[in-house]
Design a protein around this nucleic acid. Structure first.
Lengths: 191, 191, 191, 191
DNA sequence: CATGAATGAGTATTCATTCAT
DNA sequence: CATGAATGAATACTCATTCAT
């Protein structure tokens, strides 16, 4: 219960620079980038890295957490659009597509997290995302467009198996193959 | 042409032991298991590893190749059953399911191969698998059960995104979600 | 231009300890001494070796460079004495003798450099040595003591063939055998 | 005192092939060539190498011994020519030159021997060479051409310091620089 | 007697982490 | 609080030597 003295401005700046650099470096060179390289990319010394994140695993966890937060934001805006009248199935699949695209950027992050056994950073963001997706699904089911047994964890399952390291055409095709499993209508030729 | 003097019995035994151990170790601890650990698990000295596979990359490639060979076998037996009267869609999805199950055993192998940029060992096995899968698809399309635009690379795309590291129930659910993308009928509730 | 922040005191100390230890170890056990052994002899961990010299080759090159710098110093003092009135031939042969003696200490260094294909570190020191030796030769030739066709590369040739790994008497005898090739006078019995 | 049963013909052939191959390989790639490579070059298996030479050191010693034998032959022919009327100084320097040239071929052999601490193979050949050289020196001294204090070990000293790894011009120049130390006459300009 | 597969200690090098400056 | 030098365990790979076939 330390009063948590307000962190110094430059420390906050450093934390952000480090998170950004770590994201870029891991994205670009995979989870095995050295801490030194991340530090250099962030423009700080290794020691500073370790002041903010006691362990490489912690750093990666933080990067993943930031990614989860962005996903949550995306889910909530989709939900917002549905509440404003958009069709839920469309928003859900579009959301799925956007996540897959974003994953490309954050490519190896997922792998890094697994490799290092990173712990969940911020439960809160995950819950936020989960709530929004659940609402989207319910809306789609109310419309009769989304299959009644689809759940939030189905969406997560698809997230976790998205072909993030494949070319755009493959990713688009994957969406086509996977969408019919969520919806009620029969598959149409050519899409 | 090649004199190919019969390989010594013990050398063959060792090669098999090494491949098996490498598969297990990589499965259990990921691609970064040390060569020493693999050697110990195989009951040989490191030098023996290197006599059989000049490089860690080569070893992983061989493990992957063995896996591909098993997949090819599976595809061909499925095709055999179809030729003997079985329904093609069923055999195709069953085959997909079996590959996913098998993948669990070979879990990280795929990742290992990517990490190390392993080359594929035996084109032949890949071709064998491809031919058999293509025949299955054609048969299912002739029956009117498989969607006309489904191709062999669709099947490979699904392979490569199978949730090999998830619990059995998740893997089963994944099959349910993915199957409708391949077939013509509308999705039925509860499957 | 280079900010060149003053190197930390302990880092400088370590660099020196490492160079000294490397010289000794290579001298004592040849170029194949392990980096670990050099590190131990220097009282540091291997990692520290690699922080200062990214490669064994680089380390050896640095040792050789230090040796070249000492040779250059020796040549320049000899030249200084000549300018102060000493006889050039005598200084040149004495210099040759001193280099050979010093080589004993740095015994295998030369071999190590060759074995590893080490690049030369500081051209400057080599040039310094070359200039001083050239001046010595010219002075001796002006005196009529040194044979007119002797060049700097002759001196280097003799350096490179000095019997550095032989007992002192052999080294002295070698000097006696080799000196007449540089001078004008006929050889005298007994020296 | 085992009767030393006459060695089988093929064993003798193998011994020769191995010695030749070892000489070539060490000459070409230095003392650190692997035993496997030598074996391959000789067209036998490693086991056969070890049957003939229990240790790499022993093998190198044998290669050196063969070299010494050739040197002895050269010395003896030179002596023969002197006895047939040739001038001793000329034969001695020519012999020195030929040894240096030959050394080029056997380049790293000397280094290999040192590196491995190889023992003398055949005292007899060394003695043969020593006797012939001694006779040459005595003859030259009787002619008044060779300096009276020159000994056999002087010649060996020069052998051991010959610039075997330098280009032909450097080797020739080295001979010019070194010859005056052996002879009585004053050095002449230009040779 | 030849073969070549197996052994295993040894080598250079990397990298997460600590700690003196 | 930042810096970057030091640490040292770990890793892939080599090679002289042994020994089953």
């Amino acid at each position: 219960m330390t009063p948590a003295r307000a962190p110094r401005a430059d420390a906050v700046r450093n934390r952000k620079k480090i998170l950004a650099a770590a994201g870029e470096q891991i994205t670009a060179h995979g989870p095995e980038v050295g801490m030194d390289e991340i530090a250099a990319a962030a423009g700080v010394a290794v020691g500073t890295l370790y002041r903010h994140f006691p362990t490489k695993t912690d750093l990666v966890a933080a990067v993943v957490a930031a990614y989860v937060a962005r996903v949550a934001d995306g889910a909530e805006s989709a939900l917002g659009r549905v509440e404003a009248g958009a069709r839920a199935v469309d928003e859900l699949t579009a959301f799925l597509g956007r996540v897959v695209e974003a994953s490309v950027t954050d490519r190896a992050v997922k792998a890094a997290a697994q490799t290092l056994g990173a712990e969940q950073g911020d439960r809160a963001d995950e819950d936020r995302a989960g709530a929004a997706v659940a609402a989207l699904i319910r809306a789609g089911q109310a419309d009769g467009d989304i299959h009644p047994d689809v759940t939030v964890s189905d969406i997560y399952l698809l997230f976790s198996t998205a072909p993030t390291d494949q070319p755009p055409t493959a990713r688009a095709r994957w969406l086509d193959l996977v969408a019919p499993g969520l919806t009620t209508g029969a598959r149409q030729a050519g899409n």
